[in-house]
Design a protein around this nucleic acid. Structure first.
Length: 586
RNA sequence: CGGGGCGUAGCGCAGUUUGGUAGCGCGCACGGUUCGGGACCGUGAGGUCGAAGGUUCGAAUCCUUUCGCCCCGACCA
């Protein structure tokens, strides 16, 4: 492509509402434009990148035995009504009516539609397994679109669905997808982790997220450097810490007057100064009063509960919610705390608590702990779980940087991640509800066992930039760069240098003849403008053809991601570029 | 949905407090001088000041309503 004929509207200043690197550079580099909250146009450069990501995804999906289909994006409401998701999706579902008043919605995902397709056509175990996928726009009325392509209301997604005769085979399909995803993310040039995640309300018991590591990610994850363990903090666990006090024998329970001492910090400070210098945060039981809500509408219920973790730990509200089987939990206000404990905030404790008590495993292991006395300005010391109070022992704490890996005990490191893919074993959740059944070898009807596998294609485009950029712009991995090479011609200012132009065109044609994707910057612009644009757009390789080099019979060659400026003789530059491009394309 | 902020030329902004009929930088067009990391000078085009209603002799500015966008949080099969 000749830049002079291209539609690549680069800009010096991004709109003020662009904040994350990918958003800023996608706009500045002329890749995308926003036309509404969470709605983006793909300009030529942006669409080239998107097509490259799609090509890799298709290649690996096809290679893994999946077949591509295309379902409508506009869906009759009946299918989602079958599974309850027409209402269950809530405001996220974009609903609309046709001219006859018929109910429709835009597809946020396609489990129901694909399940319907399969139930109509697949009748026998002989037809299974199958794996069908599509790449299409998905629509979700996000409460808050953000960060450009990272969270949109319309976004490009690859969604695949596997159908097997039994759970065991479904796990095989899942494993095949897991491997395919690893290859996809690797080929895309992304630094990623496969992490354990919350399966959500979809009833899957096996799932994993493919998290692209990036500062701007919305998800907190932890990963072990020594073993394979990695998990979203929503579900991450740490090895139980119970060694410190395990060989102590229980002391006598005693009440201590602790005026105005509420926070863990204050409690530890107070005891350190008042004859209990052995008490640090790990020995304090932090007790938080929560309001647990469950059920909906007329069935809605509220319960006050006490969540107990070690003083140096934090309560993970997702774990607490799950342990309670609640829909949500809210930290109680002062009034509720008084009602539940008889004291102000800061003096709650599990001993003689009048509400349901849940205690974290590590907290339960602490011997001779200090904790609130459920009495204003008092704490208890030498508190022991089992002797002084009861409570359901569960995993309640949030795992943080440095906590021991649950597998090997090595310290976990924390990262921010962008969820680029998510794979689930769904089981028979949809097939049972929708009657997607097959006859097995004995002639008996069984629901098909499903799995689903998503990749946020447009999100990955932004994720790649989050991971690969510098102050000047994007640094594309070769595999998804809109062009592999940019040839920058330097004329005499805005006047063209005929000789440079001719040499550049020769190189351009030679590279194109080899199938390379080349952008020839033949614009009548000053050198600075061309260099800045080349960096911004992020083309991996740059060949500079100018009078200065041509005098010595060389062109200049630079890799966007780093490396020195090299002078390459005119007669070898083509071979060099071809070899470098191919070296980076697995 | 709670909290905060913003809508003035394609982009970034000033002007709003104290009403007097809209300006700067970039970009764009033309001319000239420059010419290897976003040049300089000159000339010019481009805006119903988000929208509607009201107050006023007069509204970007004051009042009311409304729409849109961003950020933090909640939420996110």
């Amino acid at each position: 492509m000749r830049f002079s004929n291209a539609f690549i509207p680069t800009v010096k200043e991004a709109p003020k509402d662009a904040t994350s690197p990918s958003h800023i550079f996608l706009i500045r580099g002329g890749y995308v434009r926003m036309i509404g909250s969470g709605l983006y146009e793909m300009l030529p450069l942006g669409f080239r990148v998107l097509k490259k990501i799609m090509a890799i995804v298709r290649d690996e999906m096809d290679g893994a035995g999946a077949q591509e289909v295309l379902m409508p994006g506009l869906l009759p409401a009946t299918y989602f009504k079958e599974t309850g998701r027409y209402d269950g999706f809530g405001d996220t579902l974009l609903r609309l009516k046709d001219r006859k008043g018929g109910e429709y919605h835009l597809g946020p995902t396609h489990e129901e539609i694909i399940t319907d397709m399969v139930r109509r056509e697949v009748k026998s175990y002989r037809h299974l397994p199958i794996n069908l996928y599509q790449i299409q726009m998905k629509y979700r009325d996000e409460p808050r679109p953000r960060a450009g392509l990272l969270r949109c209301r319309e976004f490009l997604m690859k969604d695949a669905y596997s159908f097997d005769t039994c759970h065991e085979d479904a796990l095989k399909s899942y494993a095949i997808m897991r491997e395919a995803y690893k290859r996809i993310f690797t080929r895309l040039g992304l630094d990623f982790r496969i992490v354990k995640a919350d399966s959500g309300a979809m009833g899957g018991d096996t799932s994993a997220e493919f998290q692209v590591l990036a500062q701007t990610g919305e998800d907190d994850i932890v990963a072990c450097h020594a073993c394979e363990y990695a998990a979203n903090v929503e579900v991450a666990t740490a090895k139980r810490q119970d060694d410190a006090t395990s060989d102590e024998s229980p002391g006598d329970l005693a009440k201590v007057h602790t005026p105005g001492v509420g926070s863990i910090e204050d409690v530890v400070g107070f005891f350190q100064k008042n004859d209990h210098s052995h008490i640090d945060a790990t020995r304090v039981l932090k007790s938080l009063v929560y309001l647990s809500k469950s059920g909906q509408g007329a069935d809605a219920k509220e319960e006050i509960v006490l969540a107990v973790v070690r003083g140096d730990h934090e309560v993970n509200e997702i774990k607490l919610t799950r342990a309670l089987g609640a829909t949500e939990v809210l930290l109680a206000n002062e009034k509720t705390v008084r009602q539940a404990t008889g004291a102000g905030i800061g003096f709650a404790g599990p001993v003689d608590a009048k509400v349901r008590v849940l205690i974290d495993e590590s907290a339960a292991a602490v011997k001779n702990a200090a904790t609130g006395a459920n009495e204003q300005d008092h704490h208890l010391v030498n508190v022991n779980h089992g002797r002084d109070f009861e409570g359901e022992v569960v995993d309640l704490r949030s795992v943080t940087d440095g906590d021991p890996c649950p597998n090997c005990g090595e310290p976990l490191a924390s990262f921010r991640g962008i969820e680029g893919g998510h794979i689930f074993v769904l089981g028979t959740h949809y097939s049972a509800k929708m009657g997607a059944e097959f006859l097995n070898a004995e002639g008996k009807r069984n629901p098909v066992v499903m799995g689903c596998y998503g990749i946020g294609v447009s999100r990955l485009m932004a994720s790649a930039i989050e991971q690969h950029h510098d102050e000047g712009g994007i640094i594309w991995p070769m595999a998804i760069a809109p062009y592999q090479v940019i040839i920058t011609t330097l004329g005499k200012g805005k006047k063209k240098d005929e000789a440079a132009e001719a040499e550049a065109t020769k190189i351009y044609e030679a590279l194109r003849a080899e199938g390379l994707e080349v952008l020839l910057d033949d614009r009548k612009e000053r050198p600075g403008v061309k260099f800045k644009d080349a960096d911004l757009i992020g083309v991996p390789l740059r060949v500079t053809v100018g009078g200065r080099g041509l005098g010595e019979g060389v062109v200049e060659y630079k890799k966007r991601g780093g490396g020195d400026l090299e002078k390459i003789p005119l007669d070898t530059i083509v071979a060099r570029v071809i070899s470098d491009v191919r070296a980076e394309l697995p």
